[in-house]
Design a protein around this nucleic acid. Sequence first.
DNA 1: GATGAATGAGCATTCATTCAT
DNA 2: AATGAATGAATGCTCATTCAT
Lengths: 189, 189, 189, 189
Amino acid sequence: MGVRRTGAADSRTRILDAAEALFADRGYEASSTARIAGRAQVPKGLVFHYFPQKIDVLVALVDERTFVEDAPDEPAEAVPGDPAGTLSRLAGRLPLHASPAMRRILFREADTHRSVRDRLGHLNSVLFLRARRALEIALPGARGDQARLEAAAATFAAVLIYQENLAGLTGQHLDPDAVADLITRALGA
Amino acid sequence: MGVRRTGAADSRTRILDAAEALFADRGYEASSTARIAGRAQVPKGLVFHYFPQKIDVLVALVDERTFVEDAPDEPAEAVPGDPAGTLSRLAGRLPLHASPAMRRILFREADTHRSVRDRLGHLNSVLFLRARRALEIALPGARGDQARLEAAAATFAAVLIYQENLAGLTGQHLDPDAVADLITRALGA
Amino acid sequence: MGVRRTGAADSRTRILDAAEALFADRGYEASSTARIAGRAQVPKGLVFHYFPQKIDVLVALVDERTFVEDAPDEPAEAVPGDPAGTLSRLAGRLPLHASPAMRRILFREADTHRSVRDRLGHLNSVLFLRARRALEIALPGARGDQARLEAAAATFAAVLIYQENLAGLTGQHLDPDAVADLITRALGA
Amino acid sequence: MGVRRTGAADSRTRILDAAEALFADRGYEASSTARIAGRAQVPKGLVFHYFPQKIDVLVALVDERTFVEDAPDEPAEAVPGDPAGTLSRLAGRLPLHASPAMRRILFREADTHRSVRDRLGHLNSVLFLRARRALEIALPGARGDQARLEAAAATFAAVLIYQENLAGLTGQHLDPDAVADLITRALGA
DNA sequence: GATGAATGAGCATTCATTCAT
DNA sequence: AATGAATGAATGCTCATTCAT
């Protein structure tokens, strides 16, 4: 309510910080509310003062700590005649604002918690629409049919979304720029 | 392991069946051993007779119910001069033998359980190697450089691995044949 | 205690209203102070401003919302020569002023909270004394011995006290007038 | 499953014993499962092994430790021409088999727990039917109308049921024999 | 191999109560 | 008088695991 001292976040913030770290590290189910409270250095009861149910902590994290930018009509990265650069810039500036920890949570909990899955689905659709629009602008000649362009956009969106997860799980590093190059060639002159 | 009565799977099998369904449905952490035993219609103690620790059930599932074929030197699907068909056939005959439930488990538990992650990593590397080898055979002229071919193989492997997950999570359906077409064009004549 | 706005009961009253409803519905133990505050639409802390301990809410309800009239020497309902009418009028004008909810509370909490039990005991003794005195007046000839008259008074008092409880618990409806008739005959000419 | 040592009741019995004492003493809500386990000298978890929910302990107590005899067509206590003795014998041989503790529980928890209320309601109806039948036999001349006989039976049943409760709550002792005498006179010669 | 009682740590959640503002 | 964050003990219940039979 008033000025906040530097370094002394309020209790609610500390709870969310702790939960974010723990959920990312070991998963939602394996992170007890007692442990969250302990890491946040607040009494156990306070967690439930702010979040009546444990799931509300996860929901709050997704709501407050992930943000998906809407797809604009004219994506800034789109440059006519430069599809490779366009995709590369899109990769460099993902319309998802979330810490690495939140990104792990988004993937790990998506298939059991609807609110998380919804956020991830939204991200995918925004990414897909943006990639498609950017490609349309970058390739004014509309070379290739629309279906091909959609497949290209969907593939690129999927690569952007899963690349981090893939690297973490399998060690395989998939370079978005290399994929951008492939897609440009596939659609290209 | 001995004669088996028709229609009545033995206890160990029933336990694994139950665990497979539950782990896929709600995750490993959220599936209690008591619930596994209940669904398997065996007494609680019997689960621990076969699997001394709960984690051993998951390990057994991954060991016994997922199988990744080794990448052969000459993949059957590879046909010189037909890269699109080659990739399409690879997509149709994934070297992963596992039920849909086991595939969900593979993804869901990968980032917290090493044995699962290892299996998934192995699948990725097999897929990658196989796609690369198949493309080498399909494109004898070695058009394009090696790096591009590797990116293509890695992209295609990633698409095959994540496509099901992506559809389940976001509703986005990514057609492997369309991606095969893109890649063919990217590498192609 | 000061001027009161029309239609907007003050906080203390609202707290007692809420507690009365909840205690009657689910019992004292099962009604949390938080729930009382919620139903009363007051902040949790305010309950403890007015009632330092939870039990004080119950005590205040019993003190302020139940009232047992003292037994007069000449009960208004007593008419010489008309014992049946006398008892019937006594039944119709119970010397207990309390809402149905408060009556439930009186019974439900009597055996664990002394203050409630005392109030109920007082009610019983007032009823007994009044019924006895009324019968003495109604039956001037002092027919039957004193012991019989006391048993009659005690029985009638018990019937009046428990009749509502009995109906709620067992569905059995015991008509006080019918009991008055029985007693009149038992004592009577 | 085998012979039971004297004085060493099995765990389930000890849990029920402890719960019976605690519920009677302080009520169901105020008796925690931990306290029940402590008094029974069993680990907390074992309570839930036998009774999945706390309420199941109460239900088991009511099921297993109260028994209401069915009303026979020819109640043993009924003797033609001796209504007072008939009622007196009925009072002396209540068709309810339950410890004093169980009787307190029956009353205290009846208005919040259906299974308890049902048992109490059943007891009342059995008592009423039995008293009515016994009076019909005891008073062969059918003196007085049927309505009066029903009121007498209902009153006597209520007195039997509430007498103990009344004594505990108010200190008022209502002698069933005295009530039997009143009723006999009311119906009588 | 099969069984189910036993165990106690741990879980999410609720609670009455306090207190600074 | 009013407020809601804070507190930590306690609650009902679940858990993986053990073990005697």
